[in-house]
Amino acid sequence: MAQKKLVQQIVFILILSSIIGLGANFHLIKKYFQGEFRQSFFSSEKFPSITFITLAEAEELFFSKDTIFIDSRPEGDYLVGHILGALNIPFEQHKEVKILTRLDLSPEEILVVYCDGSECQSSVELAKFLDAQGFKSIKVFFGGWTEWVQAGLPVSIENDWK
């Protein structure tokens, strides 16, 4: 009997919390079912300078030559291989602040940030950081290194930014 009461109370708390939680965030749920937040959890209203691009768009920007590619993976991964000409701004332990100061990029530059692929979030985190630093056009290439290599596009194992 006691156990039954305990389970009933637990179920009551869980249902109550779920109803309030889902009700209070109804606007987000609506957006979710409209297709948002499938790749990353930020609202485009909050970060208007950030857009997500596909492999085809990344390739087009790569060959247009006026875009800077930024690899957000740790330096070790970057040195093993990266998109040809990409800079490395590892998003870890606040290294990005120092490196960005050293690179002295113009806020008007078109930036493409990427990491390993859809599993990693550091490109999105770096994009947010760059948005906060005043960059106007940041594109997250979510397919990242994995898709780029699979497509056989130009890569480099040189350190392209030192």
């Binding site: 708390i13 869980l14 919390s17 779920s18 309030i20 939680g21 889902l22 209070a24 965030n25 987000l28 749920i29 979710y32 937040f37 499938r38 790749q39 990353s40 959890f41 930020f42 609202s43 599993e119 979030q121 999105v124």
Partner: peptide, 29 residues
């Protein structure tokens, strides 16, 4: 809620949709 959803996703344990709905309900629990 979205910041928390991203934090859950960063653990790389749950699929995206679970991270999203967990982030909406867990704080209220």
């Amino acid at each position: 809620p979205l910041g928390f959803a991203e934090t859950i996703a960063n653990f790389r344990v749950f699929p995206q949709w679970i991270s999203f709905f967990l982030a909406l309900m867990l704080p209220w629990i």
